[in-house]
Design a protein around this nucleic acid. Structure first.
Lengths: 149, 149
DNA sequence: TAGTAAATGCAACAATATTTCATTTGTAAA
DNA sequence: TTTACAAATGAAATATTGTTGCATTTACTA
């Protein structure tokens, strides 16, 4: 999970990427850093309902280009966005961690602390990036689940 | 890769799942079994251009429900469909294999022969399914690539 | 504080996902 | 074989999401 940051740090972050420090961007950053799950654009829209849909779309795009956030698709194929953890740079992400898709609350967790084991590909394939998806129940939903073993 | 099947086997397959043996369904089956990559709906549409878009949509949906095919999202979040390999049943898929997304030809390969190493999740998470995604160049595109190491 | 480039908001458009319903087709029973 | 029914198809229509163009506003630089 990303460390909590204050507003000055968000401004620095925008500065670092040569992005203007605008109110919508700061609000998106503060919202995303306060969560430990990825957020879908529809969700973002309903929380930030006074920010235009297109503005949000463009903010997410530019943040992704700069490597501030990354996009992850959930089981239904809807895009979710989460803050990048480590060494993501412009146009080059290293999301080699586990994305956990809870079938209960539908949240997507980025479990950065988990390192992928080495994978050997069939001959001829040259992989540059790996992402592991898991689905199941998150701790909170698992506790609520009466049928748990 | 799935073994090639003939039309009688496709009819049996539909029978087995209590689906009527209609021409569109048989054509979709025969097309998908003949490929070793996943196919996007737009691609399917252009090949099967006399089958209605909505019909195709519903065929894919019902095949997925029954566990005949499974859906996999490529790097752009577009759904691709591929025949299920092993023990997928109705509403329960076990796609614990590698999905390889070629950044060259954009094809999605289901590398069934590859078994995932065991993954230990953080405490509290209860996973039911794993899917590993890799992106890079497939053998064909890697050969064409002049910049290869 | 004025000038400029970037960012926003709005409108419009494109592509895709989904529902409704009349018609056709496959299948099981008469 | 024919009939009857349920299921599947195709066409139209709607909903949702992704994307672009442009006028206005805003943040930064000199």
């Amino acid at each position: 999970m990303a460390s909590v940051k204050n507003n000055y740090q968000f401004e620095d972050l925008l500065d670092k990427h040569q992005l203007k420090k605008t109110a919508p961007r700061l609000r998106v950053l503060s919202m995303m850093y306060s969560k430990n799950t990825a957020t879908s654009q529809p969700d973002l829209e309903s929380v930030m309902n006074d920010i235009d849909r297109v503005t949000l779309y463009r903010i997410l795009n530019v943040f992704e280009e700069k490597g501030i956030i990354h996009k992850v698709f959930d089981l239904n194929g809807t895009a979710n966005y989460a803050v990048c953890h480590s060494d993501c740079g412009a146009n080059h992400h290293h999301d080699e961690h586990l994305h956990f898709n809870c079938t209960g609350c539908k949240n997507v967790y980025c479990l950065n602390e988990l390192t992928l084991p080495a994978i050997t590909l069939p001959a001829g394939f040259r992989a540059e990036d790996f992402t592991l998806y898991a689905s199941g129940l998150c701790p909170r939903c698992d506790k609520k689940n009466p049928a748990r073993a």
